[in-house]
Design a protein around this nucleic acid. Structure first.
Lengths: 177, 177
DNA sequence: GGGAGGTGCTTCGAATTCGAAGCAAACATC
DNA sequence: GATGTTTGCTTCGAATTCGAAGCACCTCCC
């Protein structure tokens, strides 16, 4: 993953190439360690933590769709994980007053407690693996850059606007995304 | 995932917090799009692409362990994917002359062709989602930072040095990792 | 050179993942 | 206010994932 055969043709500049790979691998490693920590400290998967964290950040309750948009994840996977979290007593699910179709997910006290329980370790891992080798200025710049990138990506069609198959199979011909 | 309840206590500075979340989400989104592109353009999963790319980058052949170190992935998952790739004719597996236990994985011409086939689209996605909103200076800095972070993480005990259970259950007491 | 322990890889079962299909409520258009 | 379409969520089956356990080879050390 260092000196690709690929920098031929009109592709990414070498600088972009190595940036891309470094980014990918570093984040992959980080995620892996985080996964371990969350499992060890609080018996949570990363997704479960993200769900709980999103809820906490949002003030306690969100619909499934809002949750799906905050987490890079499939709808069905979310349903599955929400089921586990509910069974574990960390969230509750109830009908929405506004929209009969929606499900309102609410974090419980136990859920909040669990978040607080794993947070120190979580922070410690991020501190040790990610921020340790970075200066304040690095962090600032990195944050600024990634925020820009994230917002840019969010502007692209979001995952939850996924292609619900066209009405008829007839209009298939004009398919070109 | 924006204004956590969590910046309380001696944790990460707010700046670190938002940097961390932006990084995580942006890369998640990127991975998701890449996944789609690879599947569409060349019927490959990200892992499969990484395997092929690692092989190509390494000059054509690697052992399973070397491969595992280059990819953030479990050993058994690698075996599984290697099986699929072999069945698809994109790699071959053979014994190592040096070490009878090792398996030498070699990329085939078809494998190389497949990499070249998906590469333009891959590059296009990275270009559009990641690099589009970044200046040259951003890319340089980002690359420099992430390389530093990656190397720092690599220095931590690598994934493949995974804990082969202790010799006896007796020395369990002193477990604290 | 023989045994103990370490290493490289695969197999196994259980858990998680995804997309497609299904169901019901909401919305639009007439 | 009916009918067709869209939207929110779940269920389903198939594919992928992981860690633990297993097998075979290698290495160290007496």
């Amino acid at each position: 993953m260092t000196k690709p055969v690929f920098d031929r043709g009109p592709g990414l500049a070498p600088e972009q190439m190595s940036t891309y790979f470094a980014l990918t691998e570093a984040v992959g490693l980080l995620q892996h360690h985080v996964e371990q920590q969350l499992r060890t400290d609080g018996d949570l998967s990363t997704v479960q933590f993200q769900i709980l964290a999103s809820l906490a950040a949002a003030g306690g309750r969100l619909t499934m769709t809002e949750l799906a948009d905050g987490v890079v994840y499939s709808r069905s996977g979310l349903t599955y994980q929400a089921g586990l979290l509910e069974k574990a007593g960390l969230i509750t699910r109830g009908p929405s007053p506004d929209d009969e179709r929606s499900i309102l997910v609410t974090i419980t006290d136990a859920g909040l407690a669990r978040v607080r329980q794993v947070l120190p370790g979580h922070v410690e891992v991020a501190e040790r693996l990610l921020f340790d080798p970075l200066s304040e200025s690095d962090v600032a710049r990195l944050g600024e850059i990634m925020t820009r990138v994230r917002d840019h990506m969010r502007a692209q069609p979001p995952r939850s606007a996924a292609p619900r198959k066209r009405r008829s199979a007839a209009s298939e011909a004009a398919k070109g995304d």
